[in-house]
């Protein structure tokens, strides 16, 4: 009690009357037992709810990780469509329908430089006389330097090496091919 607020005994007695008159009836044993049971049930319910929330959070996190790990790969496009590779994606866009061929052969450059410059020469083509002369002039110096060695090798090697056709002709007993023979069939 704070004595500074109480002026006299009348105040003290008034407060005593208020304390007695403004008081709840005491709890009975039944009410105490009921109160404790309700309180225990409420605490257990809250604990279950808290564990449930933790379980939900953990399950949600695990599901998110699983979905991330099992996510589908990047789409490759529909069947028949070209695969979009990074190098192709970085290439400049072309208007015509076959940009990959334009990458390999530049038509404008081939026309300007001449087809033989860009396209490979026919390996089976017989060189012309002019080409033979040019080749001989280009390789003549090297040949002259190696003439002595070449002559020595030529002397020790057989003069004529039969080609595959001649060997095969000998095996099957027919006339070997002689392009200079006049009566060869």
């Amino acid at each position: 009690m704070n004595p500074s607020d109480i002026r006299d005994d009348a105040d003290r007695r008034l407060i005593d009357q208020i304390r007695r008159g403004y008081a709840p009836p005491p709890l009975t044993e039944v009410e105490r037992t009921r109160f404790d049971a309700r309180l225990r049930a409420c605490i257990e319910r809250q604990q279950r709810r808290r564990w449930g929330l933790w379980g939900l959070a953990v399950t949600g996190a695990a599901a998110a990780v699983a979905l991330f790990a099992l996510r589908a790969p990047e789409p490759l496009g529909a069947p028949g469509e070209p695969v979009a590779l990074p190098a192709m994606a970085a290439a400049p866009a072309l208007d015509d329908a076959s940009p990959e061929l334009d990458w390999l052969v530049d038509d404008s450059a081939a026309d300007w430089l001449g087809g033989s410059t860009v396209l490979p020469a026919d390996p089976l083509a017989v060189p012309t006389l002019a080409q033979r002369a040019a080749l001989a002039a280009e390789t003549g110096a090297a040949d002259n330097e190696n003439d002595a060695e070449a002559d020595a090798e030529t002397d020790s090697a057989p003069a004529y090496l039969p080609d595959e056709y001649t060997v095969l002709a000998g095996l099957i007993d027919i006339e070997p091919y002689d392009p200079y023979a006049e009566d060869w069939p």
């Binding site: 704070n2 607020d5 109480i6 005994d9 009348a10 105040d11 007695r13 008034l14 009357q17 208020i18």
Partner: peptide
């Protein structure tokens, strides 16, 4: 506290006088 006690004195003055 001071104002509460002042109000209660006024409201329950008869009880206070009776108790005195």
């Amino acid at each position: 506290l001071h104002r509460a006690l002042k109000k209660l004195r006024a409201e329950l003055n008869d009880l206070r006088e009776e108790a005195a």
